[in-house]
Write a protein that binds this DNA or RNA. Structure first.
Lengths: 111, 111
DNA sequence: TGAATTGTTAGCCATATTAGAAACTATTGA
DNA sequence: TCAATAGTTTCTAATATGGCTAACAATTCA
């Protein structure tokens, strides 16, 4: 599980770039090679490769090289953990609102 | 709604810092002043204020100044939209897996 | 084998990010 | 009104990020 905080740091940072999000989006539809991934972008291969590395270090994707082709795939876990983090917060926020409302109701009834 | 891509850029970037995530966590429990927010951290006020600004520009929080006190509160929407983005991706990924499995089943039956 | 394909490394540059100190403003309470 | 409080601005410095070119593998295909 490693340092979970650092992990989230990396995942959120990885997702903060539109090119990297686009890569994630495509990989959700299935594995792709590095050059397939680079197609939609007007960006030099080395730059794209850096994005791939960032995604890989964040745990959002993994890759494997066969012959001269490196194939990338999404790693569900990291996405799920990130979603979970956000979800817990939305939930906390909602619980608080509920308590608040209940309190208002009690006050009302006292009158 | 503004430029939604830039919006996600900012939200994810904002969440990539542990101090900012801690701020978000606390604000989910209720509004806090800038100095209340700074308490848990060994960080100069101007630095903390910058984090608050980053969060504000990302839309994750809002703040209002009354007298000399600036009170910050969470803005649910940004959190929800971010969660939604991730969720769509996990969903896409799962649909793909389902199709894949269905395909394998068909292949099996052919033998 | 030799050329094309696919990826990789190294190095450079511009810009953005994060942190701090110092100095300043506005409000509040004694 | 004067001091303390709460926040803000400005500047500086260190580091990280994202992009490029050029040069270099390693495979694969003709």
């Amino acid at each position: 599980m490693a340092n979970n905080s650092t992990n989230l740091d990396r995942t959120f940072a990885a997702l903060s770039d539109p090119i990297r999000r686009a890569i994630v989006t495509r990989l959700c539809e299935g594995p792709r090679s590095v050059s397939e991934l680079s197609e939609p972008f007007e960006i030099a291969l080395p730059s794209l490769l850096k994005h791939v590395r960032v995604l890989e270090e964040s745990g959002l994707i993994s890759s494997e090289k066969t012959g001269r082709v490196r194939t990338c795939r999404i790693e569900r876990r990291a996405l799920q953990e990130t979603e979970a983090w956000i979800h817990r917060h939305v939930a906390t926020w909602e619980r608080r609102l509920d308590r608040l409302e209940a309190h208002v109701q009690r006050m009302k009834r006292k009158h």
